[in-house]
Design a protein around this nucleic acid. Structure first.
Lengths: 313, 313
DNA sequence: ACATGAATATGAAAATAATTCATGTTATTT
DNA sequence: AAATAACATGAATTATTTTCATATTCATGT
């Protein structure tokens, strides 16, 4: 009759489970909202497929055979797991659950990102969070590939389709130097002022450093020396010990500035302002758990960072 | 497009698993022996059903979204379980595995049944065995209902359909008495000889006791007294201490007879012979693991029990 | 045993659902 | 910027599942 196919499917497990629970085909059919005939056919096909009876017919109430019991046991184990996953998927679709793997390209962003994440975790316990540092790899392609879900970046790549850049705020990049530095006497600095200086930067490509990309290189100026350090505290140390100067976000300097050793000056007459974006996939942009994160990030930065100018919605 | 249905099925899990394993729809399709188009449609339907993307399209190799990963994880957990059960079902169909729940109606059958089960277990480790005593319930209907799989009985019920009675052997029922009993002087006993005796029996319905059903009742004789005991050893005790006489299978007496206190005599001139059957469902009759058990039971009884006459195949 | 009611089985038709085919799009590579 | 490989899509096809109508089987009471 049925020539061959007949893979075991969850439908069959639901049927076996219902049959065992109700003790009759008819009742099981009612519970599953199908006709008794449908189940009878289904059972028959299974029995042919496995070449064994699934229940004993000459008795009522129906009793499953050992083979039928095996399948019903399987149903009892698997179906609850399936239900759990379906529920989680539903939650995900509603945006109440999700995954938020964040990568940052901006070394000094910890200052506001960690508090943001802490507060976020309280409201969205169903969201699985992770943070990785996007210094050694390129976070935006990873965002496209779905390896991560949000990238904090200051240089959007407009070529990438399907990525939305949500502006967070603009902040001023200041040149930090020792209070006794000759450059400290100027109200603001011109590119040429750095020609004789040692510039301390994070160890990343110059095109991703605003001092170079938007201040020195346009003017064709190269500092006397460049040295790098991974950590903001270390950079500050070097500046305080008069080993060089460094361009840093104004808020990154706040906690050190009032120690009296450090002074900061704008880069250029109007200052060097840099935007910061949260890049997310278009597909996840409207998920509530993403929107909530962006909103919280804005609130936290506006509250805790000085010298920034909020951007975006 | 698809208006509504779309239950999650194992097919979908197999698809997700293959996609994650291969990193592409096309490769997954090849592995599952369907076209790439089939999987594309399948995925699309799932995405509509769960209202969420299952993988990121703007990247190759394909990467599953969190939702897709959830389903693939589920697949990884469930499919192996399904495979195990399918394998066990195949084994059952071939009769290499099965369930052998045995019930006995015959009190003294332990003597040969336990050794039989012990030896059987060695050869058929895949068969789940159990033994229950069918004294307080009726084992044959339970056999029909599939609660048990084999009943050792001496009175077949021909009304039950679908039950096959496999003859094992005939054995003689002897009357055991104290060696000094006046009855012991006779070469064989007539029903009337018991009219003055105390008869000790197992505590079951008279119709299931051959002494009554086939010896005393046909002759219209009632013993002077009847008392019962559950255990064969206890019955022997009572007989030895001259509290009465008992009708028991000859082999059940073997281990006590040579203690010199006990003597046994045939019931009637030709002796009272009783057959023993193994009742199984027609459906399971030809399963190798059942046939093997029957064969072994015959071998063990022929080897260990005296005074029996093998029956059947 | 026989009738009766309830439950399961069955075949054919109808309804659904899954798959393929042919082709269009989109991504990656050279 | 082609070229190529991979995925998406709509229509047609094929396969499967379900229903409908009805037959058979089982359980029970007389």
């Amino acid at each position: 009759m049925f020539d061959f196919p007949m893979y075991l499917e969850l439908r069959h497990l639901r049927t076996l489970q219902a049959i065992r629970a109700t003790g009759s085909l008819a009742a099981a059919a009612a519970r599953l909202h199908v006709t008794q005939s449908a189940l009878s056919h289904q059972i028959k096909a299974l029995e042919q497929r496995f070449d064994t009876a699934l229940f004993f017919r000459q008795s009522r109430p129906l009793r499953l055979s050992p083979a039928g019991g095996l399948l019903a046991d399987l149903a009892e184990r698997l179906l609850p797991e399936v239900a759990v996953v379906e529920q989680r998927l539903a939650d995900m679709a509603l945006g109440r659950q999700g995954r938020l793997h964040i990568a940052i390209e901006c070394h000094s962003c910890f200052q506001w990102l960690l508090p943001t994440m802490d507060r976020y975790r309280e409201d969205w316990p169903g969201v699985e969070m992770d943070l990785s540092l996007g210094f050694s790899f390129h976070p935006l392609p990873a965002l496209v590939r779905g390896e991560i879900d949000l990238v904090v970046t200051s240089d959007p790549d407009p070529d990438l389709r399907g990525i939305h850049y949500e502006p967070l705020f603009r902040h001023e990049v200041l040149l930090a130097m020792h209070i006794g530095s000759p450059l400290a006497r100027k109200a603001w600095l011109a590119p040429q002022d750095l020609a004789a200086a040692t510039l301390i930067t994070y160890p990343v490509c110059r095109s991703r450093l605003d001092v170079f990309a938007r201040f020195l290189e346009p003017a064709g100026v190269e500092p006397a020396a460049v040295r790098t350090s991974e950590l903001t505290v270390m950079i500050i140390q070097l500046v305080v010990s008069r080993r060089g100067v460094a361009a840093l976000p104004s808020w990154a300097l706040d906690e050190y500035r009032d120690q009296g050793q450090l002074i900061a000056r704008p880069l250029g007459r109007g200052g060097l302002w840099s935007p910061l974006y949260a890049a997310v996939r278009e597909a996840s942009r409207e998920a509530p758990f993403i929107e909530a994160f962006l909103g919280l990030a804005r609130a936290v930065t506006a509250e805790r960072l000085s010298g920034i100018e909020p951007l975006g919605a």
